[in-house]
Write a protein that binds this DNA or RNA. Structure first.
Lengths: 151, 151
DNA sequence: TATTGTTATACTCTATAACTATA
DNA sequence: TATAGTTATAGAGTATAACAATA
């Protein structure tokens, strides 16, 4: 037994990660709302950036990578397209496929989102001792990678 | 500026905590589902345990502490009462108030939930170096306390 | 009149299923 | 016949608003 086993529910990492994660995500969502975005819109921008490095990805591939239904990608892409943040064009090689790509405006929007998230990070972590903060971020990065998130 | 500012969205703590938190909460929820419980049922059991130390709390107080609508507490308590995990009785001093209390079966159920969460913790953290794990858990506890969670 | 709990209703998020077009 | 995308529908989860009982 690696970890102590008679720990209170509220003292488990699972419980705390669930609550803290949803609170932090809520604060990020509040900031995004002022830009007319939901968290998953920001996620789609990030996924496009990480998948394509400037190229384009089909909606189905995006759905698989995000772990959401293809129908949700349609709605997310509709909205981002209406904001001018992503372009959508038919793949000439297979006209069933819609290729999504970040526009310059989309890149700028993604950077705004990152700046907002950085602001949340500062409020959350800035008062911690630097060593603790570094270790926490390193472990969190490892856990995120284990969940399949892009580095 | 305490933290570096040109960090990718997917590399922020806010983004990672949101995703990791919801994935981990999902795994916990899957385990709870086999016991006919949702995450918030477990949360209510934990809140009762932490608030009352054996006594009883009104539904409104519970709702405030959990940060949910009073109407949700009604539904959660209905279900837990049907499982025999909580008792509900009118406060003799103020007959508007329903006093919720953990039954012995409720205490046992809470401990089962804690054991399930501990299992999730082990899968998540057991492979980390002990020092990293300790620091991560200590920082997470601090973040949880800052969000108002009971220790 | 104010407060506690309850019920009725509505809203958000997301998935599943049905459909269209292309292959 | 199979696949990419889209649209229509449904379900889970939760809040808000209306209501009843008690203060």
């Amino acid at each position: 037994m690696l970890l102590v086993n008679d720990v209170k529910l509220t003292a488990t990492a699972a419980f705390r990660l669930g609550v803290v994660g949803s609170r932090v995500a809520g604060r990020f969502a509040d900031l995004l709302a002022e830009r007319d975005l939901k968290t998953k819109h920001a996620g789609l921008l990030a996924v496009l950036d990480s998948m394509t490095a400037g190229g384009a990805a089909s909606q189905l591939d995006v759905a698989k990578l995000m772990g959401v239904a293809p129908s949700l990608v349609v709605a997310l892409a509709d909205h981002l397209e209406s904001l001018g943040a992503v372009s959508r064009e038919r793949d000439p090689a297979d006209r069933r496929r819609q290729l999504l790509a970040l526009t310059p405006a989309g890149r700028a929007l993604l950077e705004e989102c990152a700046a907002l998230a950085n602001g949340v990070d500062e409020d959350l972590l800035a008062h911690l001792p630097r060593k603790d903060r570094d270790t926490f971020l390193r472990v969190l990065a490892r856990l995120a990678a284990a969940e399949g998130l892009p580095a």
